[in-house]
Write a protein that binds this DNA or RNA. Structure first.
Lengths: 103, 103
DNA sequence: ACAATAAGTCAGAAATTTATGACCAGTCCA
DNA sequence: TGGACTGGTCATAAATTTCTGACTTATTGT
């Protein structure tokens, strides 16, 4: 649909892009938990009280596509899946640490 | 119940609270525009292409309630309303500046 | 053989967010 | 007197997000 491409440089602001990547009911908390260490699917289901598989699955996929999380298959049986912060995700740690000192 | 502050308390993480305050279709961009100067309702309607009055109104109210924006009535006729960053909102500027150097 | 855990998928329903168009008050301009 | 501007509200509709419960593949434990 060849939209008129309003070049208000809105789309190229990395902070804004990040905010959108972390928009959603569970993403902020998933991200916070990821700062503490690798995450597993069933563990998250327990920690995010109220969350359901579907929503969690979608949130993890979106965060993976946005380059914040990496999905790693641990090849010991039974298979485990770990979600860990990518380099990009880790680069945000100092930013969030800074936020904690504002409150 | 009455957990004796054993682990990181999810609800008291300021970064997480902030992310939720900026969750939504227009809030990230409204916030970015607010960094540049005071905002007016009709101006925003034009700048946020696709936004409608209702959604904009709700977003501004929510951001006001979350203490990010302040609504100021300019008492010259015709009345103008300006939305400006509160102190809390301004305290986030260095954080977002930092983010821009990561991209 | 049977239940349980792990990590999901799928269809459909419910809840939430966003959009649409009508309407309102006050002021300004011709 | 009638538009046109400001900054909204309201009811309703559409779109998006989240929830529910059934089902899957593979492995471990009893």
């Amino acid at each position: 649909m060849t939209s008129p491409k309003n070049t208000t440089d809105a789309e190229t602001c990395p902070a804004q892009a990040l905010l959108k990547s972390l928009s959603g009911k569970y993403k902020p908390e998933i991200f916070r938990l990821a700062l503490e260490g690798p995450l597993r699917f069933s563990g998250l289901l327990r920690q995010l009280s109220g969350a359901n598989k579907q929503s969690l699955s979608l949130a993890l996929k979106a965060m993976e596509e946005d380059g914040l999380l990496e999905r790693i298959v641990i090849q010991i049986k039974p298979l485990h899946i770990e979600y860990t912060l990518t380099e990009k995700g880790q680069s945000l740690i100092p930013v969030f640490k800074q936020l904690e000192h504002l409150g």
